[in-house]
C-alpha cells in the first residue's frame, strides 16, 4: 500500500471541505472495499478521510419510510427488528454480504457510493425506489447509478442517509461467488400497491439495472409463473471465469423466479 495522510474530521462540513478541496482525497467508510483496493495499489489517494466521527449511523421508521444512516453497518441492518419486519428482503440481503467480520465493518453508504457492479445494496435501493440524501441534495435511485463504479455523486459529496419506502412485499435472492461472496446474479423484488419493481445486480457490464419486462408481468400477476417465459438476452452482460454472459442471462430468469416465490 502506498502511504497517505489520514484525517478524521469531526463534522460533515469539515469532511466535505477536505474532500472537495483535494482531488486526491478519498472517503473511508467501513473500509472493507477501499482498504483491499489500496493494498492492491489500484488507487493512490494522498489523503484518506475517515467518516466515522460524523454521526451518520442509525435506523429510523417514519411514515412508510425507513431511513438508514450512511455509516450504518451491514450487521446492524441484518439484525434490525424494524427492517426484518418491514423490508425482510433488505435484512436478508445484508446478512449475505461478505462474512461476519466484514459485516461488522462494512457500511451501506460506502457500498452505494462505490457502486460495484456485483455489490448487493444497489439492487435494494433501485427496486425499492429509494432516495439518497447527501450533504447538499437528494438523489432518486433511478438517477443515482450511472454505470460500473460510477454514481451521480460529485467530487467531495458525501451520502448522509438512505430513505427506503416500505413495500407490501420484498425479497432478495443471490447466486454467490463461493469465494468472494459477491453476487454473480442478485435479484431484489419489491411489490408496492401501485406496481412491482425488480432490480438485478452482478450481471450487467453497466452495473445494477431494472428488468422492466419482468416488472410489467409481475405488476399484472405477482407469481413466478408470470415471468417464466421471459428470456433475458446475454448482450451487455458480464462474462468472466466465474460465469459466461449466457449463463448469467439464464440465471437472471431462475433467480428472479426464486425471489418472487420467496416474496409472494
Amino acid at each position: 500500500m502506498y502511504d497517505f495522510a489520514y484525517q478524521k474530521p469531526g463534522s460533515l462540513a469539515d469532511a466535505v471541505k477536505v474532500l472537495s478541496g483535494d482531488m486526491e482525497a478519498k472517503a473511508l467508510a467501513g473500509g472493507q472495499t477501499l482498504i483491499p483496493v489500496l493494498k492492491q495499489r489500484l488507487n493512490k489517494p494522498a489523503t484518506v478521510v475517515d467518516l466515522s466521527a460524523l454521526g451518520l449511523t442509525g435506523i429510523t421508521v417514519s411514515g412508510g419510510v425507513i431511513t438508514i444512516g450512511a455509516m450504518t453497518r451491514h450487521a446492524d441492518i441484518a439484525s434490525n427488528a424494524d427492517i426484518k419486519a418491514k423490508i425482510p428482503g433488505l435484512a436478508h440481503q445484508a446478512s449475505l454480504i461478505g462474512d461476519e467480520a466484514v459485516r461488522h465493518r462494512g457500511t451501506m453508504g460506502g457500498s452505494l457510493a462505490n457502486n460495484d457492479p456485483a455489490a448487493c445494496y444497489p439492487s435494494a435501493l433501485l427496486a425499492l425506489g429509494g432516495t439518497i440524501k447527501t450533504d447538499r441534495r437528494t438523489i432518486a435511485a433511478d438517477d443515482f447509478f450511472q454505470g460500473m463504479f460510477t454514481t451521480a455523486l460529485e467530487q467531495g459529496e458525501i451520502i448522509t442517509s438512505i430513505d427506503l419506502p416500505i413495500p407490501e412485499k420484498s425479497a432478495y435472492e443471490k447466486f454467490r461467488n463461493p469465494a468472494s461472496r459477491y453476487a454473480i446474479v442478485g435479484v431484489f423484488v419489491a411489490k408496492f400497491a401501485n406496481g412491482v419493481r425488480l432490480a438485478i445486480t452482478g450481471a450487467s457490464q453497466d452495473g445494477v439495472f431494472r428488468h422492466t419486462e419482468m416488472e410489467k408481468a409481475l405488476s399484472a400477476n405477482f407469481s413466478p409463473d408470470a415471468i417464466a417465459g421471459i428470456v433475458t438476452p446475454a448482450d451487455g452482460l458480464n462474462g468472466d471465469i466465474h460465469a459466461s454472459s449466457e449463463y448469467r442471462a439464464h440465471l437472471i430468469g431462475v433467480i428472479s423466479k426464486r425471489a418472487v416465490a420467496k416474496a409472494a
Binding site: 473500509g31 472493507q32 482498504i35 483491499p36 462474512d99
Partner: peptide, 29 residues
C-alpha cells in the same frame, strides 16, 4: 491471505470480531 478472506487476523475491537488486516491502525484510535 491479506485479502480479507481467510480470517486468521480476526481480533475484537470494542468486543466485536473484525479482520485486523482490513482496518487501519489509526481507525482504532
Amino acid at each position: 491471505c491479506d485479502t480479507s478472506q481467510c480470517g486468521a487476523c480476526v481480533v475484537h475491537i470494542d468486543g466485536i470480531s473484525v479482520k485486523s488486516c482490513t482496518q487501519l491502525a489509526l481507525q482504532a484510535d
